[in-house]
Structure formats: C-alpha cells, structure tokens
Design a binder for these strands. Sequence first.
DNA 1: TTACATTTAGTGTCTATACACTTATTTGAT
DNA 2: ATCAAATAAGTGTATAGACACTAAATGTAA
Lengths: 149, 149
Amino acid sequence: MRLEEAIKQKEFKDQYNKAIVNLLYTQSFIVTKQSRLFKPLSLSPEQYNVLRILKGQKGSPITVSSIQERMLNKMSNASRLVEKLKQKGMVVREECPTDRRQVDILITEKGMDVLSQLHNEMHELNRTLIQLNEGEVDQLNFLLDKLRG
Amino acid sequence: MRLEEAIKQKEFKDQYNKAIVNLLYTQSFIVTKQSRLFKPLSLSPEQYNVLRILKGQKGSPITVSSIQERMLNKMSNASRLVEKLKQKGMVVREECPTDRRQVDILITEKGMDVLSQLHNEMHELNRTLIQLNEGEVDQLNFLLDKLRG
DNA sequence: TTACATTTAGTGTCTATACACTTATTTGAT
DNA sequence: ATCAAATAAGTGTATAGACACTAAATGTAA
C-alpha cells in the first residue's frame, strides 16, 4: 500500500519529508509482524536482537557495553535486556577476569534452542515482508547506507 | 556509515535480511535525532505525530480512532497520547454530538504555536538527515512503497 | 422492543526507549 | 603513589508500544 493511503495523508511537503515518514512507517510495519513471531516464545524483538549478537560470538564472551554497541537501537538498555534473558535462562553472566568493571555474557544452550526454533520462520518472514526483487533490494540497501552519510 | 560498521556485523545471510536490519537501524537513527529537537519543548516523537495529524485537519475535529488510523505506528495508543497533550494544553477534547461514544479532538493555539516553533528546524533536520539527491529520494520512496506490497 | 454483536474510548500490565544519575573500577597524569 | 578523569554496569523515572481487557453507546435482526 502506498504511504499516502496507509496513513491517510494526501501529500507531503517534499520527497525528503515523505522519505522520513516512509522509513518510520515501514519500520513499524516490520516490527509489528516480527513481534507476532516472537510472541509464542515470550521474546521481544530487542531480546531477540541481543540473542543474535551473542550467537554471532560463536562461543566467546562479550561484555554488556559491546552488546550495546552492536544493537540496532543505540539508546536501548543492554543491561536490563541481559537481565531479562538471564531470568529466562537464555544467557549467563560471568565476571570478566581482566577488568572487574566488565561483565562477560554468554548465550546458553536454551538460548541457542530458541534461536533455532525461530530460524526458518524468521528467514521466511523477512523474505516475504520485502516485496522487492533482488536488484531492488540491493538498491534499497545502497540507498539506506548512503542516506545516513 | 555502512550498516556493517554501524552495528559491527561482518556479513548478512542475504540482502533481504540486511534490508530488514538496515530499515530498523535507520529508523532508530532518525528517531534519535528527531527526539533531541523535541526535547526542549517536552514533546515526544509520537506526541508530535499526533499534533501534526490535528494540524492537518485545518480546524475540523477528529475522533481518537481516526487519529489512531493516521498514526505511523498503528499499535500506539492515541487515547493516552491525547491525554498527555491535553494536560499540556495543546489539544482539547469535546463530546461528539452525533455519537456519544466518540470524542472530538482539536488542536489549540498553544499546540499550533509549538508546531510553528519546530517547523523550520524540523524541515532542516529532515533535509540534512537524508544524504541523498532528489532522484535517489524518489527511488527510496518508490522502493519503500513497493516493499510493503 | 429486546437481545446480541459491534464500535469507541479508555484502562491495566509488561516491555522497551530516552536520558540523567550512581557506584565500582581502571587509567593516566603528575 | 595519589588523585582526578574516564569507563563499565546498573538504577530511577517518564514516555511509549503491544496486547488483553472493560464500559458505554450504537447498530441490527428477530
């Protein structure tokens, strides 16, 4: 659906303003659909994001601040998200041996299980959410990377 | 900055997965910068969105559910956002004469003042946030509209 | 008209964002 | 060696998103 119909706005001042609104609306469109996938596993999109970061470590520990740096939303609170995941038994916290300010985080077997349960569905969803051909997706990624300067 | 550096992820499974992550990251990038503009006026991005919808009405009232339909995030809670704006004196609530379930909302002089204070800065910010030329912005809007099917 | 379904606004609760703050530890300059 | 600055993790608080729920008003069909 065109943005104008989706939010019932007839016109935009210019294409730059429309692009801003289009990006915000499209993110909400994506997150809403992803959330429904996470729901049965009692996982939020941001908790999923943290688990993905931990999985990417392939066994080596990562500190809370490094998780924060890798998060999609730089303003989110990795400390509290890790605590939520720990309560669910999906991660463990360990004191960092070289710097006692830091805390090493590791994904558990249970955390890995949750990710593999989601793997196929997520891949399928991401593919169907984006109704573009391969050339168009490449172009979109190029434009988004360029947009941010 | 390329997405890979921004979130320190070396590669993506495919361009579709990268596009999803790119869209989520870019939205956060935009909202974070917009929030700083709203901060001095004690306005949140979503409250601003509601005020913009009300301004677009050019004086005619709009119900809470119609505001909801026009919002960028369809899951947000127009009822509570309107209440916050009312407490700040930026909107008024009136009982709808034809349907007592509904509540008509109108923007006040104060609400309009806040919008005009932000007008120039917002336009400038939106323009500088998007580091694309005119043809590229058109292309981006086309791709985002097509993406959602 | 009565009974039932639908619509509208609003509430409750959990989670997350935004941002200022605290505490503990480490760094680094003198 | 000392002490201020910087860094890491975590806390407090206000706002918002996600989603189930309620209450009141309206629509509709028998």
